[in-house]
Computed example of a mutant assay.
Amino acid sequence: MVVFPNAKINIGLNIVEKRQDGFHNIESCFYPVGWSDALEILPAESFSFQSDGINIPGDPATNLCSRAYYMLAEDYDVEPVSIQLLKAVPIGAGLGGGSSDAAFTIKVLNELFGLEISLEKQLDYARRLGSDCAFFIENKPVYCFEKGDRFEEIGLNLAGKWIVLVNPELHISTAEAYAGIQPLRSENDLREILTTPMENWKEVVKNDFETSLFPKYPVLKKIKESLYNKGAKYAAMSGSGSTLYGIFDEETDLSGIFGQYKVWQGYLK
């Protein structure tokens, strides 16, 4: 079975408070985008995981896809499989690519072996793998809170808008990003703001990581400014970086502007 685990963007990202378990409570809107990896999972004589494309650091045995397989194999009669991942979504880019791969592994195994795992249980398995993973189980726009793994419906529909994602190929670890953060609850209700026209978002829909990361990596601020200069209705950094995105009313080819970086552009759904 072949699937295409997609990325997501954060529209607004407020770091609310540090939790006693060392994580942070956040509030954000997660929105799926079309930049995708390719994931093939087939029955095999023994389990294996291989990847091509962008190099994935670390031991393949601890990759999130491998961990997803072994986690389900503990609870269900799951046959060995071969997992082949073609990695295209940049790593450490604030796009949730690895989390998406893991969530799609859960969904594929559930379908491939007829496990009939309930939606809630799939979400629980995904939460065990990482804070972003659960989003990709349903893979639809949501307001997220707590560690970014609890969700509420949100009436945000950007279908037909054109999005340009620009990744300057900087790897920013989560630990590095959070090192510069001072948690503070926002005075604005993100859910309410996102019901207003996009032109109103620029001054109030913030990504808290920009405050500390823009001075450290000036290229990030420069990309954001360029997106606005080219007509973006809203532009921001996604997650803890380093990808910037701009949302436009209509198709706007900016590949020549950011030729030295990784660029993905397409329609939102």
Rank of each mutant, 00 (worst) to 15 (best):
D132Q: 09
Y178I: 00
L170C: 06
N167Y: 03
N188E: 15
A179N: 12
R128V: 08
T195R: 15
E146R: 11
A175K: 15
T174A: 03
N167G: 06
F113I: 04
R191D: 05
F113R: 03
K140C: 08
Y178G: 00
I154R: 05
Q182M: 14
I106M: 04
F145D: 07
G114N: 08
C144F: 07
E187Y: 09
E176H: 11
L190P: 01
Q182E: 14
I181Y: 10
I106P: 04
C144Y: 09
E187G: 14
L194K: 10
K161F: 10
G155L: 12
F145C: 00
I117L: 02
Y143T: 00
F136A: 06
R191N: 03
E120R: 14
F113A: 07
P168C: 04
L165K: 01
E176Y: 09
K121T: 12
G180I: 06
E187M: 08
Q122R: 11
S118K: 05
L194D: 00
G155D: 15
T105W: 03
L156D: 01
T196F: 05
I193T: 07
N188G: 09
R150Q: 14
R127V: 12
I193A: 13
D124Q: 14
N110E: 08
F135T: 05
L170W: 03
I154F: 02
F113L: 00
L119R: 14
A103S: 13
R185H: 13
D149T: 05
L115H: 06
N157D: 15
L156I: 11
D149Y: 06
W162C: 09
Y125I: 02
E111D: 14
I181V: 10
R185V: 14
A134V: 05
V164Y: 02
N110D: 12
L190T: 02
A103I: 12
F136S: 08
S173R: 10
L190W: 00
P141D: 08
P183H: 05
N167M: 03
L115F: 08
P183C: 00
A103W: 10
A134C: 04
N167S: 02
L184T: 15
P168N: 07
A175M: 13
A175F: 12
L119Q: 14
G130D: 11
L184A: 13
G114I: 01
E120F: 12
E192W: 11
L170R: 01
G114P: 00
E152G: 06
K147E: 04
G148F: 08
I117M: 03
N157P: 01
S173N: 11
R150K: 13
V142H: 09
Y178E: 01
R127N: 14
E111R: 14
L112W: 03
K121M: 07
A126K: 04
L184Q: 15
I193G: 02
L123E: 13
E176T: 12
D189K: 12
D101M: 01
I163H: 09
L119M: 12
L184F: 11
D149K: 02
K121V: 11
T105L: 07
K161N: 13
A179K: 14
D101N: 13
M198A: 04
I193N: 07
R150H: 15
N157A: 04
R185Q: 15
P183E: 03
D189W: 10
F135V: 04
G180Q: 09
K147D: 05
F151W: 01
L112H: 04
A159T: 15
L156S: 03
F145R: 06
